[in-house]
Design a protein around this nucleic acid. Structure first.
Ligand code: MN
Ligand code: MN
Ligand code: ZN
Ligand code: ZN
Lengths: 138, 138
DNA sequence: AAAACAATGCAATGGAATTGCATTAGTTGG
DNA sequence: CCAACTAATGCAATTCCATTGCATTGTTTT
């Protein structure tokens, strides 16, 4: 097992089983967010439900965050270290390229403050930008 | 048929059938976005698939916009007049209250500009804010 | 009225999320 | 090391929702 994989799992008290190591390694290799079925295909013939539960566990433990990019299929990407069981802190923008269909985390692109109507208070924000990514820009 | 209902449908060249009038009236009564199953329950025993196709038609014709609020069930709300077949122009923030679970359009709350990384360009943005709404505030 | 087109209702399909449960692997106290 | 317990897995089954096919019905056009 790569040391980084081991560390990621250990940091969040997730016991490093074979499947979890496979999924974590796959997540570490990505430069875009991936869907459950992406993982299933890549890890076939591994059991679909075990993958599902692995991702659920990762999500609960603050290892990955879900990105609803409007394409129908939720995508997953590794969290920053600061995330934990109780709260995710990925307050960055997510970008869905309408050309290559990839969804990226933009960790340096923070969600700006918005002034809500009076008596509304916010605990969480989610900004999806659609457009053309750098690789697809002509 | 209420004149406003008739007008909404006529404006977008949607022929006013019985089902479409029912659904449009229901949408007009709401002060929060509603899901397909909300409509189904409210209009029971009307045919589920016809409701589904009605909403699809409304969406395509620029009568309603979809809100993916992260709750799993897509919500629908009436568009502003400026929306049309080719493009929706509802660039406002959507708010999902974690207390009452309702999802609201905040038409006066525009999505702020974000500075994307170099060579990324945006065509569309979607901002969901979660928190406590005015009615649920302490 | 006939033909053409649009909308509907019901059946059927398809896909993905979720759960139940029996089995297997891993951990811990004695 | 063994028994007892807990965690993780694999497979079947369920549930839920979106979507399509098709025959029927309603509407518009000529
Ligand atoms: Mn992210
Ligand atoms: Mn809206
Ligand atoms: Zn791209
Ligand atoms: Zn509320």
């Amino acid at each position: 097992m790569k040391p980084i994989t081991e560390q990621k799992l250990a940091n969040k008290n997730v016991t490093p089983t074979a499947m979890r190591i496979l999924v974590m390694n796959m997540l570490l290799e990505q430069n875009a967010a991936i869907s459950l079925s992406d993982i299933e295909k890549s890890l076939a013939p591994a059991d679909r439900i075990t993958i599902y539960r692995t991702i659920k566990t990762f999500e609960e433990k603050g290892l990955v965050h879900v990105i609803e990019d409007g394409t129908g299929a939720p995508k997953y990407a590794l969290c920053l270290e600061e995330c934990d069981v109780n709260e995710h802190h990925d307050l960055h923008v997510h970008f869905n390229c309408i050309s290559c269909k990839e969804t990226f985390c933009l960790p340096n692109c923070k969600i700006p403050d918005v002034s809500l109507p009076v008596n509304f208070s916010s605990t969480e924000m989610n900004l999806i930008v659609k457009g053309i990514c750098d690789k697809c820009a002509n």
